[in-house]
Structures are given as structure tokens and as C-alpha cells.
Nucleic acid binder design. Structure first.
Length: 613
DNA sequence: GCCAACGTTGGC
DNA sequence: GCCAACGTTGGC
């Protein structure tokens, strides 16, 4: 039936030919009334939606049909009741109906709030519950609830094109407007680049303004440049080392809300900021990297006061500081030197409050001291490799802080503090053996990974932030991987190291670059970390349990149990047992379901699979 | 419990 | 700003 309907689309009037506003308005209103009728007359129709039908609906190619369908319905009148033997129109339209129901009568100016509504249903906690309950009366499934909501015909790009604006309702970029386009063949476009690729050969978009959806008249499209220097700052500030002075990247959106940009002078001398900051931080905080001290362009962030003249402030180590690199903690009010900001990087936050807030707000992030275990390969290695970055750095800059050779670095340090046993760092990328066949090393690392990641539940899966006691135990790599979202990748296995998508797995096929609709948004299956990726994301155990046919535990993490809305017994038990205690003790009651052995057999076969690919 | 979907975020 | 993909959710 769907196919039949689909086949009709080419013969049908092309929506794009209609006057845009009129078309949108008509179809919207019509659908609205349809929604009412449908919901009133045949409420039980919705559950008849089958995955197949949904797929068909999801199929990009069905979008034009939707419009066609609307027009047909318009011709037929408002009675949309479904009769036996006819295509269940409900399955086709329910969400659009719902969406449009909500959308009914709205004009373009209201697109934003409309889009916001759909987002709010997901991202605003608290009141959203009520909202959802009401909303769900008409929206049976999220996946059908709003993907097609808010689209406006956009004939400027050609017949059948639609455009949608979405305003972000949460996150650091709240208020930002995103623009999407939907092609007549269902191409969902999220960026100008995608749009260009889709319309390549059909339309010259050199003068097209993606945001406004209009073409310039003889005005060159503004060119963009990337600011690579941003990286360091962002990584630091967004993760553990937010106290590190900001580089050129300070002109990010975040920094704009932070402090008046015009007041942000650059080029503070390295000494001034870095060393005083260091001393101010005290030994319990992660020390800045020497490279950062010496090479980064630092920004003096002005204090909240409007004082224009820097006031000398003695720092702990006796250096004379000026007020212009002194901040006042937005939480406790104390002044401090450096550039610590709160989690959102909007307000100054002293190191103490910063650490405290991290403990409160990021219970999964634990600060531990790093103590070599004395037993692992790294600890037993007494010879500097001379090849790693740390060795090279030491050779190049012997005067600067020395770092231990990466090959000598403990890969399974003991952590100070409660519940520290068994926690290990992940090994930096550069510590990975050059060949994937270095099984002994791999196994050791893998075992350590399994120990460190011994959780079957994402909620129990903590990110360990190691606080070095000794300078020579830290490396840039430690920072690097902490900064990244590493919960799903070890960064070491073949899959992690693979940078090329296979282009054939379902996740690849879903990618816009492979012509997909970007619904799954997952990394290529063959690039999913064999150790830490969710098991269901891995290539060959889709749909399987924890163990393979040989009884070996399969690689990858089991699916986590998110229990925000549906509390599992496990979660309840944990919650009741530990209360709101975010202490490290929860290490002890972590399920061991995926520790066991490194699953060498499965691992090996997995590696073979990846390699073969 | 599994899965598809997608909001969100980090890196570039 | 764009893109990749992570983390979480709702629906089944």
C-alpha cells in the first residue's frame, strides 16, 4: 500500500508549484483538522503503525507523498476516516497531524516556538512531565512526534524543498537557531555543505544564505576561517583543565557571554599568569603543562569590577600580580588568580569551588592521585624509549619539566583516596603499540581497561580524573583523553584507530555523507571500540547477548540502563543503598558483568573482522 | 530489554 | 559553524 502510494507521488501535483504560504497554510490547517478527526474518530488507529509503515514513512522518499496525500485529502474533504481495505492514513500522518495540530494556525514567525516545543519535550526537565503527558495523548511515539514538524515549503531551492528553523532551548548555545532543509527526495540537510552537495549540479548556492534561506543579490557569501587555536582552550575549559589560560580561542560563543570581549586584552606574559596561577592553585590541582606556559598566548581576563587600572596583588609565591588576571569567584566571592571558570564557562569560579562543583555536578568524575602500581609493564620498564613525545620533549627542552617516558608510565596506577583500588587510566593514543599484533601489550592494556571500566551500567561508569602529585607523572596525553568523550572508545584498538568508515554498515549508510538521513548518528560499526563501545553498536553481535556462541564474553559494553524515567530495581537498590552518596565507594558495588577475562577469543575474532574489513 | 531516534556536545 | 557521534529517551 505504501508503495502504491509512493508511486503516485510523481504523478501528483508538485507542492512546490503552489504559492508557498498558501500551500503551507492550507495543508497545515487541513492536517490539523484531520488530526482532530482522526484522533476523535479512530484513535485506535495509531497503534496500527508497524515498523514497516514507519520505515516507509521515515523513508525520505515519502515526504513528497505526504504533500500529495494532503492534497488528495483536501479534495476529498475533511472526512479522513479510514476504512477497511484502504491505506490507513493514520499511520501516515499521525505525527504530522499532531505536529500540525499543534502547529495549526501558526505563521512562520512562530516556527521557533514550535520547534522549541518539540525540543522542550525532551530537554526541559520538571514541567516537561506534565507537558509530555498531555502531548503524548496525541503523540504516541517520539520518533513520529516531530521530525516532520515545522517544515515550510521553500521553493526557492526548487520544487518540494522545505525549510525548518529550530531554536535551541537548552545547552550552552541556547537561543541559537538551526536551519534545516528537506529535499523533495527526503534529503535532510543540516548544513550548508550538505545542501550544496545535495543540490550540486542543480542549483548554484554560491550566493545562497543558508540561514535565511535566500540568495544574495550580488553579494559574495562570507567566507569562514577556522581558528585552530581554539582547540586547546576549549578542550581545557570544557573538561578538566579549565584553569588553563585561554588562548585565541577565547572568542568562542562561551567566552562572549563570559566577559565583555572588548575588555579582554591579550598577550599577558607567560610568567605572569602561569606561574602565579600554579602557585595559587596549590599542589592539589593539576599543574599546567610547561608547553602551555611557554607557548600559549594567554588572555588576561578582566575582573568583574570595572576597575581600569590593574592593582598589584601579591601572589602566594611572591610574584607581583595585577588585578587584571585576578578573578572573583562567582560562588564564594574570593579573589583568585588564573582563569578558572565554572562548568559552563560563564562565571569565574575559584579552584576550590570548581572542584567542589565538579564533585557535586559530575559525580561520575573522580579526582584521584596517581600513584604507579609498580607492577605493570610501564613500571617495570626502566629504559626510556627515546621516541615518544615525552622523551623527545625532554631531549628538546631538558630545562623544562620532565615527563616520564610514555613507555615507562604506569598503565594501572593505584589511586589515593577511597575506593581507589583497581582504577586505571586509559593509555594515551601514542602509547599504543605500532602494530595491532602486539597482543601482550594489548592484553595488558585491555585487562586494565576492563578493570577500570568494570561497569555494565553507564550510570556506574565513572570518568576518572587523575590529579597528579608529581609533575613527572603527567603527560599531555592524560589531559587529552580526559577531555574527550571516551566512554565509548579506548583509543587504542584497531577499531578506534580506524579513521575510515566502511560505508556499508547501517550506521554508515545512515550518514549524510553516504546519502543517509542521519537518524542513527552512530559511528561506523567497524570503528566502534571493541572494548568500550556499546555492545549493540559492534559489528557482529547485534542482537546477541553478552556471550558469543563459544561462551566467551563478547567485547563491548552491554547496554546501559538509563533509569531517569524508568527506575530499574538495580537503580533503586543502588539509590537506596547509597543515597546521594557519590563517593568512590560505589566502585565496590559495580557489577562485574563485563570485567571477566579480556574475552580473548572474541577479541581476536573481532580484530580479525576489523582487519579483514 | 532492545532498538530507533535525536538532542546535545566536543572537536575541528 | 559544521560535523561526528555520544548519551539518553520513548516506544515496542
Amino acid at each position: 500500500m505504501n508503495e502504491e502510494t509512493l508511486e503516485e507521488s510523481p504523478k501528483s501535483p508538485v507542492p512546490g508549484k503552489e504559492p508557498v504560504e498558501e500551500d503551507v497554510g492550507q495543508s497545515t490547517e487541513k492536517k490539523s483538522s484531520e488530526a482532530e478527526n482522526t484522533s476523535k474518530t479512530a484513535p485506535a488507529q495509531e497503534p496500527t503503525a508497524t515498523p514497516d509503515s514507519l520505515d516507509t514513512k521515515e523513508n525520505p522518499s515519502s515526504d513528497p507523498v505526504t504533500d500529495t496525500e494532503k492534497e488528495i485529502k483536501e479534495e476529498e474533504g475533511d472526512d479522513i476516516r479510514v476504512t477497511a481495505g484502504e491505506p490507513p492514513i493514520d499511520w501516515f500522518e499521525p505525527l504530522e497531524e499532531d505536529d500540525d495540530d499543534a502547529d495549526s494556525g501558526r505563521n512562520d514567525a512562530e516556527e521557533e516556538s514550535l520547534a522549541g516545543e518539540s525540543e522542550r519535550s525532551e530537554s526541559v526537565p520538571g514541567s516537561e512531565k506534565t507537558f509530555k503527558k498531555i502531548y503524548q495523548l496525541n503523540v504516541p511515539r517520539r520518533k513520529r512526534s516531530h521530525p516532520d514538524e515545522g517544515w515550510v515549503e521553500w521553493p526557492i531551492l526548487g520544487e518540494g524543498w522545505k525549510r525548518k528553523e529550530v531554536v535551541r532551548r537548552s545547552g550552552s548555545s541556547v537561543g541559537q537557531k538551526d536551519v534545516y532543509y528537506l529535499g523533495p527526495r527526503g534529503d535532510r540537510v543540516r548544513s550548508r555543505v550538505e545542501l550544496v552537495s545535495v543540490l550540486e549540479g542543480f542549483l548554484d548556492l554560491s550566493t545562497f544564505d543558508y540561514k535565511t534561506g535566500k540568495f544574495y543579490e550580488g553579494v559574495a557569501h562570507p567566507t569562514r576561517t577556522r581558528n585552530r587555536a581554539k582547540r586547546k582552550m576549549r578542550e581545557r575549559s570544557s573538561s578538566e583543565s579549565s584553569w588553563v589560560d585561554r588562548g585565541e580561542g577565547a572568542d568562542t560563543p562561551d567566552s562572549h557571554h563570559r566577559l565583555t570581549p572588548s575588555q579582554v586584552p591579550k598577550n599577558l606574559s607567560c610568567n605572569q599568569t602561569s606561574f602565579s596561577s600554579h602557585s595559587t592553585m596549590g599542589s592539589s590541582y593539576q599543574a599546567p603543562r610547561s608547553e602551555e606556559r611557554s607557548s600559549e598566548i594567554r588572555i588576561k581576563l578582566p575582573p568583574p569590577s570595572s576597575s581600569s587600572k590593574p592593582i598589584p596583588i601579591p601572589s602566594i609565591n611572591g610574584d607581583v600580580m595585577t588585578e587584571d588576571n585576578t578573578l572573583f569567584c562567582a560562588k564564594c566571592g574570593i579573589s583568585f588568580i588564573g582563569t578558572w571558570y565554572d562548568k559552563q564557562r560563564k562565571r569565574p569560579c575559584c579552584p576550590g569551588c570548581w572542584a567542589a562543583s565538579k564533585t557535586k555536578e559530575h559525580p561520575m568524575i573522580r579526582f584521584r592521585k596517581w600513584i604507579p602500581c609498580g607492577q605493570c609493564v610501564g613500571c617495570h620498564n626502566n629504559i626510556n624509549c627515546g621516541q615518544c613525545a615525552n622523551c623527545k620533549h625532554g631531549l628538546q627542552s631538558p630545562e623544562s619539566r620532565k615527563r616520564i617516558c610514555r613507555k615507562r608510565k604506569c598503565i594501572c596506577p593505584i589511586r589515593k583516596g577511597p575506593g581507589s583500588a583497581g582504577y586505571m587510566p586509559q593509555t594515551p593514543y601514542s602509547d599504543i603499540p605500532d602494530t595491532f599484533d602486539d597482543i601482550s601489550f594489548q592484553s595488558e592494556v585491555m585487562e586494565s581497561q576492563h578493570l577500570s571500566l568494570k561497569s555494565s551500567d553507564t550510570e556506574n561508569f565513572s570518568v576518572n580524573v587523575d590529579v597528579d602529585d608529581e609533575d613527572d607523572l603527567s603527560t599531555d596525553d592524560d589531559d587529552d583523553w580526559h577531555k574527550k568523550r571516551k566512554r565509548r572508545s579506548c583509543g587504542e584498538c584497531k577499531a578506534c584507530l580506524c579513521r575510515k568508515d566502511c560505508g556499508t554498515c547501517d550506521f554508515c549508510v545512515d550518514k549524510p555523507k553516504f546519502g543517509g538521513s542521519n537518524k542513527k548518528r552512530q559511528k561506523c560499526r567497524l570503528r566502534q571500540c571493541q572494548r568500550q563501545a556499546m555492545r549493540h553498536l559492534l559489528p557482529f553481535q547485534m542482537g546477541q547477548g553478552d556471550y558469543g556462541p563459544d561462551g566467551q564474553m563478547l567485547p563491548g559494553r552491554p547496554r546501559p540502563h538509563y533509569t531517569y524515567s524508568r527506575k530499574s530495581n538495580f537503580k533503586k537498590n543502588r539509590a537506596s543503598a547509597s543515597g546521594l552518596d557519590f563517593s568512590d565507594n560505589d566502585d565496590d558495588d559495580l557489577p562485574m558483568s563485563w570485567i571477566t577475562e579480556p574475552a580473548s577469543v572474541s577479541k581476536h575474532s573481532y580484530e580479525l573482522s576489523v582487519r579483514d574489513h
